[in-house]
Simulated scan of single mutants.
Amino acid sequence: MKFTKMHGLGNDFVVIDAVTQNVRITASMVRRLADRKTGIGCDQVLVIEPPSAVDIDFNYRIFNCDGAEVEQCGNGARCLARFVHDRQLTGKKSIQVQTSNRVMTLNLINKNLVAVDMGVPELDPPAIPFQATEAASLYDIDVNGQVQRIAAVSMGNPHAVLTVADINTATVAELGAALESHERFPNRVNVGFMQIVDRSEIKLRVFERGVGETDACGSGACAAAVAAIQQELVDSPVTVHLTRGPLKIDWKGSGSPLIMSGPAKTVFHGRIRI
């Protein structure tokens, strides 16, 4: 099987072309590919498939390194846009892709920049899904006997966002793991730790469900921007600084689509016997 290793700000992927190859992806295969000691190594495996509808260019599937298929990956979407163009699967600079629960528009701006229309953020608790009696900008949640204040947002996948004084001292591993599997998030949750720098800048660390802390999380950056804008802590557009670089997020507010812009890099191409 041919594959390509890519990354978006250090969030790394094994990208598989299932358009020109006959490939059947299984959870055990994903775990093998993602293993950093005995496989290729990645945070997620991305699979590009033929379109399931006439107005779609490709289907886009995302698997975490534990083998679980998930709904969304913003950094992966930027890499997908670069991949299909570089591998000549399409000549379009703007493409429509179908994830498990939404259609996304990917725009290849230049060799180093991709803009992704992530769709309208979901703030209604049942749709996130998150257990709450009504929608709010902040929720109190009991975590190991302590009350934490979080924002809850879905960017096609669920996110909890906490505001912290300093991301360098935040207990990302401990609190992230506790929140990831909290009973109020029935599908588990990605956890963002957000530090407000000023009205136009955020620093962020993300504990991804099924992965752990990653260098970058595109949908997490989007969720953090939504949470901060909703709480009137920042203005749009906002720059979200992750471990290996920034993403620009533009969101006009409730009911509006969100645009994320950032880089996507190819590391190498290879083959692996499956």
Rank of each mutant, 00 (worst) to 15 (best):
V172N: 09
V164W: 12
V14Q: 04
S100A: 13
S137Q: 14
S137N: 13
L138Y: 02
L106C: 02
A136S: 14
E69D: 06
Q146C: 12
K252V: 01
L162R: 12
A18N: 12
A18L: 01
A224T: 12
A160I: 00
V189L: 01
L46D: 03
A177L: 13
N75R: 05
I202Y: 08
V114I: 15
F58R: 05
V120A: 01
F130A: 00
E49V: 03
T38R: 15
N187M: 05
S94C: 11
R188T: 08
P50I: 12
I109A: 07
S254F: 09
D17W: 08
N75K: 04
N107V: 12
E183P: 00
V23W: 10
N11Y: 07
I128C: 03
F130T: 00
I274E: 13
G218H: 06
P263K: 10
M1Q: 08
K111E: 15
D66P: 07
Q231I: 00
K2Q: 13
S94L: 04
I274G: 05
V15P: 01
R82C: 05
V172A: 10
P51M: 05
S28K: 12
S154A: 06
V164E: 08
V197R: 13
D215Y: 15
I150T: 06
A151H: 07
K92I: 04
G76L: 04
L138P: 00
N101S: 14
L179C: 09
F193H: 02
A228Y: 04
V30Y: 02
I128N: 02
E49R: 14
D43T: 03
R244P: 01
G91P: 01
L247G: 10
R184P: 00
V234Y: 03
R273M: 14
Q231G: 00
P158D: 06
F3R: 07
M29H: 02
S219H: 05
G253Q: 10
D198E: 10
E174C: 09
E71M: 11
E232G: 02
V267M: 11
G255A: 08
F130G: 00
R61P: 06
M155H: 04
S219Y: 04
I196H: 01
L175E: 11
L162D: 02
F13D: 01
L258Q: 03
A225F: 04
P125N: 00
H7K: 10
Q230R: 14
Q195F: 08
M6H: 09
D124L: 03
Y60N: 06
P158V: 02
N75F: 04
F3M: 05
A115Q: 15
L247Q: 10
E134S: 04
R188I: 02
V70D: 07
I229H: 04
G270N: 12
A173G: 02
L123M: 11
S94R: 14
P121F: 11
G145S: 13
L80W: 02
C65L: 12
R102L: 06
E208V: 06
S200N: 14
R82G: 01
V191M: 08
T214F: 09
S181G: 02
A224V: 10
F207D: 00
S100N: 13
P246I: 11
A173R: 15
V191I: 08
T266F: 14
I229K: 09
D140H: 06
M104C: 03
I40S: 06
